[in-house]
Design a protein around this nucleic acid. Structure first.
Lengths: 190, 190
DNA sequence: CCCAAATGAGATAAAATAGTCTCAAAAGAG
DNA sequence: CTCTTTTGAGACTATTTTATCTCATTTGGG
């Protein structure tokens, strides 16, 4: 068993996760047979990579959290103003919709305390960033930082869904989200 | 068969819908047996009121749309400024979370073209209101009215979920949502 | 080219759930 | 109080989906 062996299996595993999250985003109740067919493999092979549906979903969930964590840290949340840092994070997260959107509608994950805890932990950097922005006066302080983080999550889901539905162009998505989230829908009293 | 007979059956049917939407909000995959138990009735009786799971879910969906339509029209969306009208609508919709939140996670409804069309139709008054607000200069015109309506939906879901999780008090919910949605998270440059 | 490992297709359990049916008990109208 | 209707509990069937297993075929390393 060489390095390339594990690399190939890992790569295929990742590709399976990509296909699965893609399908589950549009059809949360897809059966394993449908997932296998969508990924172009046999269901037996799917089972060789993921012992059960639960194992697949959990792998998808943790992979999603890892992607979020990586996107956040790559955006250097502690660099520059909180506003600019949050913009960078949003621009990094919006393109990940294919791999994250299924989280909204997958009931299995919230029954796993470990996963829920990991999910909260993955958002801590954003929470810290919001608090930093509140302390610097950039973000509103009459809204709790926890609420803002939660609201941001849903604003991202709204964006991803608009992308799926074709009501938002990829190149516009992050900008539209940032405009709406940052400044709201009411015209500024300028 | 007197009027009271149908009234009583109707009342019970509505109570069943209430219990079902309440349970499905927290457990979207609840079986019919679980729903019946949660409502305190036998599963045979549940089947007497709703022939199938699909019939139950559709009844829930259409009831939800009716509640939205009613809440909107009771808020008189064409009275006063668009901003004030939208505030009234949001204040009317926030308390309906128990009966509407399940919509976000119910996969069955989006497969029914009729329902999807009815859902769009139920939001037309809000769309018109947003457009009115854009024309009057109250709402941003560099965001599409469709996007704002869609974003509002998700902001409502975010609020309802915070209420379920106990992270938002009932009396604060509408105010917090309105603040965040209308003015965003960034401090106004006053 | 050869061979071990991985794969795909499908048969076959095993499990969960939707939906039906029966019957005794409860509820409600008059 | 009596009779009709509705209900609840549970047995039972049908259906769907997960999970296992077999075996011929394919793939890729050496």
């Amino acid at each position: 068993m060489h390095d390339t062996d594990t690399s190939l299996k890992d790569a295929r595993r990742i590709e399976l996760l990509n296909m699965a999250s893609e399908l589950l985003a549009t059809k949360p109740t897809a059966s394993l047979a449908e997932i296998a067919e969508y990924a172009g493999i046999g269901k037996a092979t799917l089972h060789r990579y993921f012992a059960s549906r639960e194992a697949l979903i959990l792998a998808l969930g943790y992979r999603a959290l890892a992607l979020v964590t990586q996107a956040i840290s790559a955006s250097q949340p502690e660099q520059g103003s909180a506003t600019e840092a949050l913009k960078r994070i949003i621009e990094a997260l919006v393109p990940l919709g294919d791999k994250l959107y299924f989280l909204l509608r997958e009931p299995l994950l919230e029954t796993h305390a470990d996963f829920v805890a990991a999910e909260s932990a993955s958002q801590l950097p954003i929470l810290a960033l919001i608090q930093r922005g509140q302390a610097s006066g950039e973000f509103k302080h009459d809204l709790s930082a926890e609420w803002i983080v939660h609201y941001l999550d849903y604003a991202l889901f709204a964006t991803w869904q608009s992308l799926y539905d074709g009501n938002l162009a990829r190149r516009d998505a992050a900008r539209v989200l940032i405009t709406t989230l940052f400044g709201g829908i009411v015209t500024s009293p300028s």
